[in-house]
Each structure stands twice: as C-alpha cells, then as structure tokens.
Nucleic acid binder design. Sequence first.
DNA 1: TTTATTGATCGTTGATCGACGATAAGCGAT
DNA 2: ATCGCTTATCGTCGATCAACGATCAATAAA
Lengths: 110, 110
Amino acid sequence: MMKQKHCCPPAKAAPRNTSGNEEFATLCKALGHPARVQILQHLIRMDRCVCGQIVEVMPLAQSTVSQHLKILRRSGLIQGEVDGPKSCYCVDKNVLKRFHDMVETLLEEQ
Amino acid sequence: MMKQKHCCPPAKAAPRNTSGNEEFATLCKALGHPARVQILQHLIRMDRCVCGQIVEVMPLAQSTVSQHLKILRRSGLIQGEVDGPKSCYCVDKNVLKRFHDMVETLLEEQ
DNA sequence: TTTATTGATCGTTGATCGACGATAAGCGAT
DNA sequence: ATCGCTTATCGTCGATCAACGATCAATAAA
C-alpha cells in the first residue's frame, strides 16, 4: 500500500466521503478543548457578546481567549464582527446545525 | 482574576457544568482527526472488526492506525478486546449516543 | 491632541500530536 | 521449540497546540 510521511491521506481506492469527514473532523477539533466548548456555550446563551465579556467569564488571559476565538471562528462555528473598538461574536447556527446533523448521520449509520 | 500557567481551569465562580464540557471536549478531540473519523465510520458499518482490516482500509502505517485506535479507545467511543492473536474493535453505541445528545443539548440551548 | 480602552497579533516556551520504523509480545501452526 | 502472523509499544522527529506577556492598531473619551 502507498504510504506517506507527515501528511494527510491521498486519494484512496474507496475513500467514502472523505471531504465530509474532513469538515466534521475540523469542527470536532475546534471543540476539542474545554475552553472552546465553554466559549461556545456562553455565546449560545448570550446570543451575541463582545470579547471582553467572554474574557471576564474565562480563567484565561485575554490573549489566550482571543486565540481560542480565532480557532472557533476559523472553524466556522462562530462569526465575529468589529463594533467600534470592540469585537462582537455570535454563533453560526447553520454550522452548528450542520455539525449536529453530521453526528446524527453517524448515529443512524449503524 | 486568578490566572495560571499551562494548566486547566481551576474552580471558578460559576463554572456551569464544567465536567460535562470536559467529557464533550474529550470526545470531540478524539474525533478531531479525519483518520479517526474514518475509523469510527468503518467500525459503525462493519459493526465490529479486527485491527488488520482497518489497517487495510487506511493509507497509514499499522503503528499509526494502532495509535489512533488507542486514542479512540481511551475516549470511550470504541472498545477493543483481544481475540487470539488479533484485536477486535467495536463502537460503544452508548457513548456515541451520549455524544449525539450532548450536541443536541447544545443546539437546543439557544 | 493626548489618553484610555479594547482586542488582535507577535514571540516564546513547554507539552502534545502525528507520522514512521523497529521491536516486543502473544498466539497458532508446524 | 520454532516460525509466522498480528498488534501494541517504544523511540524519534518535526509540526502544532496552549498558555503567557508584550506590543500594536483602532476607536472613544478627555
């Protein structure tokens, strides 16, 4: 079998929906840290809020929270927009719903 | 606010279900790599199968697949039992269901 | 204009990940 | 007892993560 070093799987015989796997894994990875789960939950409850409000709730430095927000944003789970000198974040419910559907699909596949 | 270095959050004022977050993050982290998602899907479809069969399907070295299996097993998503010289793996459907429910709870919280 | 506030980014540091080959350990067959 | 097959573990290496403080850029307030 073809092997490779330090890189993601190449084309395979029957890769069975690899791109979907990729997106699912990306979303999971974004939620693979308790701080980011907490941030997402907080955003869900508050609907939308500003970075500082999140920092207040978290036992982490502002720069660390900002980093987590960046990761969540990159995954698509949250969106951020500048609001004056502040940054306002909110959950992208479509992406969250899609994530949910992916898990459901997984569950139904058995 | 109390800060700390290189370590997980300590007790907080109102940590709001931190242990649940922890488990959810752990499961997400386990699925945060496309290879592990693929392995889980394969196990779901095959119901149960032996390590070698998984290695055949994946474009990765046997040791790498074994490592991924270990991570999935540690997360609780799959179980493994020795069967002679082979190792047989299967999905823990209860854990998968719980994972699904966690996502659903997240979705319903908005 | 200067100052304060807010948040993103930079740079660093130690820990963990992800890949591999090599090796060890357990079992079945010869 | 030895050999072969199967799988887990070890050791290594580069890449990425997670945390922090420091700094920078942009806006609001004085």
